[in-house]
Nucleic acid binder design. Structure first.
Length: 551
RNA sequence: GGUGAUGUAGCUCAGUUGGUUAGAGCGGCGGACUCAUAACCCGCAGGUCGGUGGUUCAAAUCCACCCAUCACCA
């Protein structure tokens, strides 16, 4: 398989359809989008799908509380998610939903295949039940006193005070958060997936490049403990897909959520003649499949999901890319602290490209958390993007417009310097490929410094004053603008809008990686207009203030 | 409680397989310039690398324990 010609399918985690997109979500969508745009910029065939995660108890109950149907709520959030992500220039080929016919069919198909291969088993389990609400209770819906440290009002599965984990049967004085009634134990038949059958396959898969080493080490915990069967069913009432051959059993949301990747892609295939679902998902497919996810859902994607795919005779993901969480000013995002920033709230005050750049500057390939420090955000964006990058174009363009009728010269003043900039592509390309955007942007900004130094050395404003040297100004500024153009090719995955403005300014076609080879010479450019405005720290203050007002 | 990740200058981060006086950007201070969105250029000052102990001729880098933060525990 030639790694550089095969087709790529990429997914981001599906946002849960019970709340708005916030800046934490955006770490992942921006990370993925940059990677996808980079692949496309290099000319690779790369499809990017996503959608809303629609099922489960929280959505069912929230819809009930709001007096609307779950279906209605899910559609509303799906549209909102799509809108907000689009405004951040996240360029999906399709944004769908897990509550779709495609997903139902795929989930049922997978279930049938698993059943045929004897990978499904039923057995009766005991579970907490709320007699007043008339439903089984997820662990999170039970609160009580921690059996370890005695802290009151703790979740049914873990204590936030002492960190202990336990089963809901162990908690003292348990109460349902739905009705307040003490839960009773009740038997119910559940459907299990025989995960243990896949231990050898999973160990092999994770050890051979599907996950990074840090993630692999974490997964060893599961392998060491031994893989247990996975409960893939939930009792009614539940918002999800009913399990065939049952009256009141539904597929657990975490079974159908990743299948949603396939469903979204299937939905896309059905609307296009150039895409073939089987080519991407049949066993031994020559295409590449990547899932970008948060570190919190590694288990589902690196254990359950590949096992389900293998069991149902689909191809395995090529790799799982996990990232860390977002903190704001060094702390967890929190509504009470006024640091819970929704995508929509951000957009009322600030340009999405600022955030895309800031995240790029912070993102590496690992699962460390990244911090959005608002003061640093303002300083970094203004310094890098306006002070250094755009400044290159800004300081060269005036001379070309005023002294040379907007025309670039036919040659570069310093071809060696141009070559130095173009040669950086090898390293920058590798950084993007390995999701080391922080390293990529560091290298690019170093080049931006170099470009400003060059202009400072050649001093076109001095050359322009002397009749003998006035002609050199055109060459120097043409050089400067070509250096800028190279930098904009490198940054196009991160800053698509700025790249577009650059294309308009230079009067050229859409930039791609291949355009590094030839400089733009001997043509007319547009008069320069500011391409990016400085971040006003008052806008940031206004955003923060707006968040602190009680909604 | 268990597992994994993280903890380096005021801020945000780099530091390859342990090896000369620990680096960058921003901020601060000083200088220069005036083409540029008070931008850019040159220079300076800032750190006992979370803590303790250990291995080594030599550790931010390896080992042990501890502390803090984040995540997960089907």
């Amino acid at each position: 398989m030639d790694k550089h010609t095969s087709k790529i399918l990429v997914t981001s985690g599906l946002p849960y359809a019970n709340g708005p997109i916030h800046l934490g979500h955006l770490v992942e969508y921006i990370q993925t989008d940059i990677w996808v745009r980079f692949q496309r910029l290099r000319g690779r065939d790369c499809i990017f799908v996503c959608g809303s995660d629609a099922h489960g108890t929280p959505i069912m109950l929230q819809a009930r509380e709001e007096g609307i149907s779950a279906e209605e709520m899910v559609v509303t959030y799906q549209q909102e998610h799509q809108r907000d992500l689009g405004r951040f220039m996240v360029e999906f080929d399709n944004f769908y939903t897990t509550h779709s016919e495609e997903n139902r069919e795929l989930v049922e198909e997978i279930y049938h295949r698993l059943t045929e291969r004897n990978l499904i088993e039923r057995r009766v389990i005991e579970q907490a039940y709320d007699e007043e609400a008339g439903m089984f209770l997820p662990d999170r819906f039970i609160r009580g006193t921690c059996p370890v440290c005695g802290a009151e009002d703790q979740y049914g599965d873990s204590c936030e005070v002492c960190g202990a984990t336990y089963s809901p049967g162990e908690i003292r004085d348990p109460k349902s958060i739905l009705s307040g009634a003490p839960p009773v134990l009740k038997e119910s038949e559940h459907v299990f997936f025989r995960l243990g059958e896949f231990e050898a396959m999973l160990k092999n898969w994770t050890a051979n490049g599907a996950v990074d080493t840090g993630v692999a080490r974490k997964l060893d915990e599961w392998f060491d403990a031994g893989l247990r069967d996975w409960d893939i069913s939930r009792d009614a009432p539940y918002f999800g897909f009913q399990i065939p051959d049952t009256e009141d059993k539904f597929f657990y949301v975490w079974l159908d959520a990743p299948v949603g990747y396939l469903a979204s892609f299937k939905n896309l295939c059905d609307s296009r003649t150039d895409l073939n679902f089987e080519e991407y998902f049949e066993p031994g497919s020559q295409t590449e499949l990547y899932h970008f996810i948060g570190k919190d859902i590694i288990y589902f994607h690196a254990l359950f999901w590949p096992a389900v795919l293998e069991g149902a005779k689909y191809r395995l993901p090529t790799a799982i890319f996990a990232h860390g969480f977002l903190t704001v000013n060094g702390q967890k995002m929190s509504k009470s602290r006024g640091t819970f920033i929704s995508a929509a709230a951000y957009l009322e005050h600030l340009d999405p490209e600022y955030l895309r750049y800031y995240y790029a500057v912070k993102l590496g390939s690992g699962i460390e958390d990244i911090d959005l420090n608002l003061d640093d955000f303002v300083a970094r964006t203004n310094s890098d993007l306006v002070g250094k990058l755009v400044n290159i174009a800004s300081r060269c363009a005036g001379f070309i417009s005023k002294n040379f009728d907007g025309r670039l010269s036919d040659q570069l003043e310093n071809p060696a310097l141009q070559e130095e900039f173009v040669n950086a592509a090898v390293s920058i390309e590798a950084c993007y490929e390995h999701r080391q955007y922080s390293k990529a942007t560091r290298e690019i900004m170093k080049l931006a410094d170099r470009a400003n130094q060059y202009i400072d050395e050649r001093k076109p404003w001095v050359l322009a004053r002397n009749e003998k040297t006035a002609a050199e100004v055109q060459n120097v500024c043409t050089q400067g603008l070509n250096l800028f153009r190279v930098l904009m090719i490198y940054l196009k995955p991160v800053l698509p809008e700025l790249a577009k403005k650059t294309e308009e300014f230079l009067g050229i076609d859409a930039l791609s990686w291949a355009d590094l080879a030839e400089p733009v010479l001997g043509r007319s450019i547009q008069p320069y207009r500011p391409m990016m405005l400085r971040v006003d720290d008052k806008a940031v203050s206004a955003l923060v203030e707006a968040l602190q007002e009680p909604a």
